[in-house]
Amino acid sequence: MPRELFTSPAHWTWLIVVYFFVGGIAGGSFFIAAMLDLVGNRADRSLSRLGYLVALPGIAIGGPLLILDLGRKERFWHMLVQSETFRPMFKWWSPISFGTWIVSAFGAFAFVAFLAALVRSGDRPQRGPLVPFHKIVYGLGPLSKLFLILGALTGLALAGYTGMLLSVTNRPVWANMNLFGINLLGLLFLASAVSAAAATLYLLGRRRGAGVEHESLHALTRFDDWVLGLELLVLIAAIVSLASFFGSVSAAWLAGWGALLIIGVLVLGILVPLVLYARPRMLGGNSGVLAAILVLVGSFLLRTVVVMSSETIESLERVAHGG
């Protein structure tokens, strides 16, 4: 029996699944928006603006979910400040510890960029409370660039650290996803989060009235295509990496979670959107919308399968072994 089957489940369930999903979209949206502002066209501003408008609500929903999941919610600050000494609490080798700081830092970046984005693109506000924020994001030359680069990196960290959090445990599936000395979970979550963020921005950006250029949307779907391709490769590698682990679990476990992973995530969440993006005329004008919705569903299912298959493994295995 693999060593991971001797451990106990943490009971990280739906709150955590939803947090992974929403937090990933928030981080990915900021990353895409900052990339557009850093290297894109001036006309991409209306799309990047949407990215910042998604990032803050995303983390504002996700962060509290993490607190709700605690056994003692009123002590959430013990992760930031040591409750006895009031010194900062930070352990670089504990994913929840550095994750807490990533979430906090990202909250700050997202807050500033959100307020800047409230200023309609193209406007140059002369006065008003939002001016300083607009200035930080767009008006300080190299310092604004630095702000965007750091924010984008924090966004990617937010999207990927959740996978690290699961892998740095002793739990089945999470701690087993290693291939060639690399654990794939952070990489997988990161790709899936960025692709889900692109899908979200696509859905928001194509609405009439969003004022987003076709050209920006096209770049976005092309980007999502590539990221989906990356995610596909990583997912296949992840399944290969779990092969020896699969050998030791029951057919019931495989039939349930394994099937959801293949059909829900790999086929519906990645392959079908790839085809739809590649052939935008297949379903009239709506292939892009369907593709984006499927990407979001796939991204949510991926987190569901990864988290819940490990959390529920004991009960399924107990049934399988007649225990």
Partner: peptide, 10 residues
């Protein structure tokens, strides 16, 4: 001190 995050359990 513990706030019940359950990282130690896993």
């Amino acid at each position: 001190v513990c706030n019940g995050c359950r990282a130690c359990i896993s």
